[in-house]
Design a protein around this nucleic acid. Structure first.
Lengths: 106, 106
DNA sequence: TGAATAGCTGAACATATATTCATAGATAGG
DNA sequence: CCTATCTATGAATATATGTTCAGCTATTCA
């Protein structure tokens, strides 16, 4: 006998699932983080480059990157004094890309 | 000659695009709205049913539905004194479903 | 018409969150 | 070492946002 299993088509969602979905979408809901993620689709970039690209202080970018890191949406790699960030979750990158396409031609 | 055109793989995004992506993800980033949307995947439901399902006042649900309506994520249909809501954007419904699957078995 | 029900709306309030500022840690180069 | 550079961190602040509350509109039914 199989035990009952959570499938994505279940209408009612348990609290933990709801919170995790909310975390993901919250991470993608801020304009600055959207610019950061869009920039990282292309290639890894260091904090200073992201700050300049997004028009933010390096501190602000660092806070955003911590947010994204904790959700494993991005990962960090140190090279000398610089820390390079890149996308670390292709499902979320795909989600992001789809939302973008929906907005641009959709 | 083709004029230059915005394609989704462009790394840099213009402000308006960024804001529209942020609006979509913001709409999907609240636990109460997530429960509402999850419930509507299945079938249309009226405000009172959504309120009971989500454990919210009808007023709170109404505020959330206005938010979702303005983004054309849901649409409304009156039947007598009740107003039935249903999903109105299959791309966003798809986005939602994918995020859910990512969380549940991802 | 009048009462009852369903839902909407605006203001008020409480909480969450993005950014700044000051400071600290880590690394490279002199 | 000492300094400069790059990034991280915590506190403070300003703004955004979810919920409640009171009151309103619309619809049904007697």
């Amino acid at each position: 006998m199989d035990s009952p299993v959570m499938i994505a088509s279940d209408v009612q969602l348990d609290d933990r699932t709801v919170m995790r979905v909310a975390e993901i979408f919250s991470a993608l809901s801020d304009p600055s983080r959207i610019r950061i993620i869009a920039s990282l689709r292309d290639a890894e970039r260091h904090v200073g480059a992201l700050a300049e690209m997004a028009g933010l202080s390096e501190s602000a970018v660092s806070h955003h990157l911590r947010n994204l890191r904790q959700l494993r949406i991005v990962k960090a790699r140190r090279d000398g004094r610089q820390i390079f960030y890149s996308l670390d979750d292709e499902h979320i990158a795909d989600l992001f890309q789809r939302s973008l396409e929906h907005v641009l031609h959709g």
